[in-house]
Design a protein around this nucleic acid. Sequence first.
DNA 1: ATTGAAATTTTCACGAC
DNA 2: GTCGTGAAAATTTCAAT
Lengths: 152, 152
Amino acid sequence: MEDPVDRRLAAEVARDPRATLSQLSARVGLSSSAVQARLKRLENSGVITGYRAVIDPEAAGKPLSAFIEVTPLDPTQADEVPGLLEHLSAIESCYSIAGEASYMLFVRVAAPRDLETLIQSIRRAVLANTRTTVVLQTFYEHRPMLEAPETD
Amino acid sequence: MEDPVDRRLAAEVARDPRATLSQLSARVGLSSSAVQARLKRLENSGVITGYRAVIDPEAAGKPLSAFIEVTPLDPTQADEVPGLLEHLSAIESCYSIAGEASYMLFVRVAAPRDLETLIQSIRRAVLANTRTTVVLQTFYEHRPMLEAPETD
DNA sequence: ATTGAAATTTTCACGAC
DNA sequence: GTCGTGAAAATTTCAAT
């Protein structure tokens, strides 16, 4: 994505994916059709991988979030961890990391008891040690990756 | 959000926020107007806090991500940390946490050198110790919080 | 990339439950 | 208060340039 118009368009859509083509076309200075074609290109080429509404975790009944570091006891099994955990819907994100632990998970649950249950599920699924860090407060999340364009 | 229709609608919108009212109305079994009214209510009541397009980090020129734990040297300053760091656009999320460190940041940068620069910016802005955990691979991210409705 | 016309969707006022 | 209907306005789509 070297084209500056594509970057601008991606930034606009990242912040406001529900904007109409007309609105986007006004913001990037192209016709609706041109915007439509570029958007489709960005989607098909994998630059835009999806769209999400951001839901308030409390309203969704998941007020408790945490980071869980996972270290498999058997290094042989290490590569399969993400697949083995994928079915646990409380897991929002899964990364492999450099450091003492092998994986970092970000999870959301309803209550402390569900966190315990989740950790047990994880340890059972992958035979691993875990280290959990509970989130006390979320100050900001999901901030857009692309720079905000200047408000001309 | 106790109403099951609202939960269903929120789940649908969370997964596909660009769906038309007509499409949503078909999925939840209400008229477009009813869906429109419920959506507005979900937005105004803070259940839906925003919309995002998910951009491929590599395409956006930010292939390197990391977790940064921040521990202010001066506990007095601790409450102001999120505000003091908010201007750093590389920071995607900021949480206060239970554990040794006070805050957990999730950041995205273009290259190792930018990570170093960012850490310096953070330490200068808040006078804190930092502990950085580099992400080696992202297996999944941003998975929707709300259960997928059954495909009837 | 733009234009313009047809098809679809959104919006909104009104009535029914 | 919530939901459905219908007509006007806005938007999307697509072929032609």
